[in-house]
């Protein structure tokens, strides 16, 4: 259903990796001609998820893809970590819920900023978050 046109992987293991990662996502978004508002939403969502990965799982691997569905192009981001996993995803997706000392906006906020959002987690094994932002969505 989706055709992957271009792909890049980045390992995230320290906080200094966040800014270069955001810049890489921006490059991809600019390349497909995404509007500035959608770019900003995508990069903000990416920043939230990559920070989560660092904070709760000491990092992980991210994949940036340009994808196409019919006539629509978009960016798909995948965040894979081998952290402790999330026991109650429903609870984690609620605004204001945090097991750390943050605002608890990361996951629900990132979902609101995305066109499509999916999270899978197994306790003790890790978490994978996938999001799509369509160029015009």
């Amino acid at each position: 259903m989706y055709i992957v046109l271009n792909k890049d992987r980045m390992v995230i293991e320290k906080e200094q990796d966040v800014v270069p990662y955001r810049n890489r996502v921006k490059e991809f978004a600019v390349k497909i001609g995404m509007s500035l508002v959608n770019q900003t939403k995508l990069i903000t969502a990416a920043s939230e998820l990559v920070r989560n990965m660092l904070k709760y799982a000491n990092g992980g691997v991210t994949t940036i893809e340009v994808i196409s569905k019919g006539r629509e192009n978009g960016i798909r981001l995948i965040f894979e970590d081998k952290g402790p996993g999330i026991a109650d995803i429903k609870l984690a997706m609620k605004d204001g819920f945090s097991t750390g000392k943050s605002l608890g906006l990361g996951l629900p906020g990132a979902k609101r900023l995305s066109s499509e959002f999916d999270i899978k987690s197994t306790v003790g094994k890790g978490t994978t978050v996938t999001l799509i932002k369509w160029k015009n969505g």
Binding site: L36, V37, Q39, T40, K41, T44, E48, D95, L103, L105, P108, G109, R112, L113
Partner: peptide
Amino acid sequence: MQPAVAITLIELGL
């Protein structure tokens, strides 16, 4: 604050 940042902040819930 840039307009795109303002729009994003509100959607984020901040």
